[in-house]
Simulated assay, not measured.
Amino acid sequence: MIYRPLPAPVQKALEHIPEDGLDVFLLAGGSIRGVIVQAARLIHQARANHGLSPIETTVLGRGLLTGALHSGGLKGKDRAAFKVHSQGAVGGMSVEANVLGEIRGYLQNSIQEQDIPADIATTGPSHDGRHYRDTLMQISDRILGSGTLSVTRFPEGAREPATSTVAFADTGLDQVFESFYLQSEQVPTRIWTSFAWDDTLMLQSAAGLMLQTLPESPRHSREAFLPIVQYLETLDLRRQLAELSLQGKPASEIARQMFADFDVEIVGSKGIEFFCSCSKDRFGTFIQGLPAADRNEIREHGPFPLDVTCHYCGSRYAFSREELQELLG
């Protein structure tokens, strides 16, 4: 992967917020499982590598945050892939996450101004930036339209991956994933993703929270789950996540503060990052594996250099005529 440099103002801002990370915790005597992530650096790197607008950053960023939240439950060498197929202008997105906290993903299509629902004002931020932040979240809730979410798991040691698919219609991405967990896994789940932007449209914080009942004790879990969710519904949770992140609080401290009345216990932590395993060597191997007719066409007519781009991370690799001749013989 080739990391594109972050703008100097972004690098300076990141000096004052916690490192990206993920914490897994239990509530209510171990009957509820939670995952909380802070991922401002991850989202900034995805934005830089893909060249995303604020709206595109919000849409893809929510998918990346959800991938990070899901990685909190992976074990061994497990990994998971999420594919959203949408009838909306964005077309969909793909996100992958593994047990190491390495997250990557991309949008199927870019989002143009004319793709934004006409009834949502996008004239710019108010003096405190809150109006525009909320507008971006509204747009990301509406831009998908209807479609399907497919989740493919690659468990360590399994002979074949397992894929589950659920349909959705005109709902936000958080709710799409909640529906997946309930319909496919029979696990009641709530997900919140949060972003804070300043008046220059620089991302200041990105955080996510997921709560789930534990399958091994469904009755106890569900009895404890409802009052916690009802409590959270009384809060402006997205705003609270953003504000606590901007105060420099790490994810574990946010969880302890937010759930102080629910017997919170931190049971695991790890780092997360925007990372892709692509490389020029891997693309070279792919070129060598093309059908003979395609290899001959490239060998004779190029183009030179041959530029290839990784969909997942936006890294671009250029193969000169000499490199192609060496690869293709």
Rank of each mutant, 00 (worst) to 15 (best):
L136W: 03
D128F: 00
D174Y: 03
A158N: 10
D170K: 11
L144K: 04
R142N: 14
D141E: 09
P155H: 04
R130I: 12
L173I: 14
R142M: 09
F168N: 10
E160S: 07
G124T: 06
T122M: 15
G157L: 02
V151P: 06
Y132K: 09
A167F: 06
Q186C: 06
G172F: 05
T135P: 03
S150F: 00
D134F: 01
D134Q: 13
V151T: 10
I139L: 09
A167S: 15
E160I: 04
R133Q: 15
I143N: 06
Q186Y: 04
R142E: 15
M137G: 09
Y132W: 15
D174H: 07
L149S: 09
F180L: 04
T165E: 06
Q175E: 15
T123I: 07
T123F: 06
P188C: 11
A162G: 07
H127S: 13
V176M: 11
S179Y: 09
T148N: 08
A169V: 07
T165L: 01
I143T: 05
L149C: 08
A162K: 08
F177M: 11
G147C: 08
Q138A: 15
A167K: 12
S146D: 11
T163L: 00
S126N: 15
F154P: 02
P188Y: 10
I143F: 04
E160F: 07
F177I: 04
R153G: 14
E156C: 04
S146W: 06
G145T: 05
R133W: 07
S126L: 08
S150K: 03
G147L: 06
P125R: 05
E160K: 07
H127E: 13
E160Y: 05
V176Q: 02
Y181G: 10
F177C: 04
L136Y: 07
T123N: 13
F168G: 11
T163P: 02
T148L: 03
S164T: 10
D170A: 10
L136R: 03
E160R: 06
T152W: 00
E160L: 07
Y132C: 04
T122E: 09
P188V: 11
E160H: 08
R153M: 08
R133I: 01
S140E: 11
T171G: 04
H127T: 12
R133Y: 02
R159E: 15
L136S: 05
I139G: 03
Q138W: 07
G172R: 07
M137H: 07
T148S: 12
S146A: 13
R153W: 05
E160D: 09
G147H: 09
L136P: 09
L144N: 14
P161K: 00
A162T: 12
A169P: 04
S140A: 15
E178N: 12
V166F: 01
T123S: 13
L182A: 15
M137R: 10
F180M: 01
S150Q: 09
F177E: 12
F168I: 05
E178T: 12
P125N: 04
T163F: 00
L173K: 03
Q186D: 10
A167I: 01
E156H: 11
R153V: 01
T171K: 12
